[in-house]
């Protein structure tokens, strides 16, 4: 099985004024293609920081992060943007849709930055929205959609450029349990299609769905074995 993501001795610390605040210590982690992994841990344990590092939104203080065969810790900003656009799909807890754009335009956005033509973008975006059951809501703005619908738009957006890794940061955290289960079902389906998914969650029951649970505590991986 191909390793899609490998972290070697990754540390991350922030400076708060003169104070050095360590967040992650010597993280070693490998994620294989097609894996569905849950990241769990109490708040402040470094889950979000870990996601930001994997998603190339942030750089590690030390260590190497390999996505495919590229070490993202040393890539220039321009290349990081490219990787975020092409290889990573983000799903956020608060959806993070752009409120003045319609569902369709929101899904098109990642493709805009990859220079994909308008016609192709519309085709791909409407396919994705159709697949997620939003075929009739494409021209609605986020404010006109329910929480579950918004998260589905966000998932469609994350899938727009066929990313190698889907990163979901508590995707059901802002949803009621019924809607949350619907969203989880979508992730399960995506996993069954062979996608690689990393999901931060607080919910033990949701984590049980995954191939593997990575537990973080105080910036260290406490337990990362396959469940």
């Amino acid at each position: 099985m191909r390793t899609i993501l490998a972290m070697e001795e990754v540390s991350k610390s922030y400076t708060l004024g003169k104070l050095n605040v360590p967040v992650l210590h010597n993280i070693n982690l490998a994620i294989n293609e097609g894996e569905f992994a849950a990241i769990m841990g109490p708040s402040g344990s470094g889950k979000s920081t870990l996601m930001n590092l994997i998603g190339c939104l942030d750089r590690p203080t030390a260590g190497k992060i390999m996505i495919g065969d590229m070490d993202t810790s040393i890539l220039p900003d321009m290349e990081l943007s490219r990787i975020r656009g092409k290889k990573i799909g983000f799903v956020f807890q608060t959806f993070n849709l752009i409120s003045r754009l319609t569902a369709l335009k929101n899904v098109e956005l990642p493709m805009v930055y990859q220079d994909i033509s308008g016609a192709q973008r519309v085709k791909r975006a409407s396919e994705l929205l159709g697949m997620l059951g939003l075929g009739d809501r494409m021209n609605h703005k986020p404010a006109e959609l329910s929480g579950g619908q918004r998260q589905r738009v966000a998932i469609a957006r994350a899938l727009a450029n066929e990313p190698e890794i889907l990163l979901a940061d508590e995707p059901t955290g802002n949803l009621d349990s019924k809607t949350g289960q619907e969203i989880m079902q979508i992730f399960n389906n995506l996993h069954n299609e062979g996608r690689t998914i990393l999901m931060v969650t607080h919910d033990q029951a949701l984590a049980q769905n995954c191939d593997r649970i990575i537990r973080l505590k105080d910036g260290r991986i406490e337990d990362g074995k396959y469940g």
């Binding site: 998603g55 939104l57 900003d77 321009m78 943007s81 490219r82 975020r84 656009g85 092409k86 983000f90 993070n96 849709l97 752009i98 956005l109 990642p110 930055y113 990859q114 957006r157 727009a160 450029n161």
Partner: peptide
């Protein structure tokens, strides 16, 4: 600001 963050997260470069 948040929108810019989202744009960057989905692949917008500084230049964009």
């Amino acid at each position: 600001v948040k929108e810019i963050g989202v744009m960057k997260a989905v692949g917008a470069t500084k230049e964009n």
